[in-house]
């Protein structure tokens, strides 16, 4: 059970020296799924009622079908993997038939595809964009760099895997992964979303391959 979400202070930029200082304010915010306690108690009540589980599981199945059929990835390209991601979004591979629309605002998105090298300087911004997305939200780590640092693992400036910054649901290996790989990762993600609330917790991420 997570604690209450702290109130976000009004953004007064002149009080802050830089973005890092601004980020320190948000360090206490949970990155897990936020949910309503009232809604949860109501659904638990229905679930414990005799025969009520039919309603809740059917509602869960319906809601998860809706969630998995309209995963909107936020447009977030970091490096060369973004080229393959764009190819996946375009007409030849066409993820729109899976209900995915690349969206230019994190506030309307459900999925973040971390496509590329995450540097230490970029990590606070990445976390910030992730925090702007509404729950429930998912993250796909695309390519060797985002999985583990990749060829830049021994560089001085690279985060050794984006899972040190945000929770990751699907790892897509490759350098860069071709659109087919990413498409497979997105299908894996849809499988995970299908079992989202019904099991009471998130499915474990797929096995990490570097």
């Amino acid at each position: 059970m997570k604690g209450p979400i702290p109130e976000i202070p009004a953004p007064i930029w002149r009080n802050f020296k830089d973005l890092q200082e601004w980020e320190l304010l948000h360090k206490t915010r949970p990155v897990d799924d936020k949910h309503s306690v009232l809604f949860e108690s109501v659904t638990e009540g229905i679930h414990s009622f005799p025969g009520g589980f039919v309603v809740t599981t059917a509602a869960d199945a319906f809601l998860n079908w809706a969630r998995k059929s309209s995963v909107w990835p936020v447009t977030f390209g970091l490096a060369c993997c973004a080229i393959e991601m764009m190819a996946t979004f375009c007409s030849r591979f066409d993820v729109e038939r899976l209900g995915m629309v690349p969206w230019a605002s994190p506030r309307h998105s459900d999925l973040m595809i971390v496509s590329g090298t995450v540097t230490i300087k970029m990590a606070p911004m990445l976390l910030r964009i992730y925090e702007q997305m509404p729950d429930p939200k998912w993250a796909v780590s695309m390519g060797s760099c985002a999985n583990s640092g990749g060829p830049f693992r021994h560089g001085y400036h690279v985060v050794k895997g984006v899972d040190r910054v945000i929770p990751v649901d699907v790892y897509v290996p490759g350098c860069p992964p071709p659109p087919e790989s990413l498409l497979n990762g997105l299908l894996l993600l849809q499988e995970q979303i299908k079992h989202f609330k019904r099991t009471g917790q998130r499915a474990a991420p797929n096995e990490k391959v570097d």
Binding site: I120, A123, H154, G155, Y156, V158, V159, K160, R164, V165
Partner: peptide, 10 residues
Amino acid sequence: AVDTPHPPYR
């Protein structure tokens, strides 16, 4: 040293 720790990310 290339692996100099840099909290919180590495």
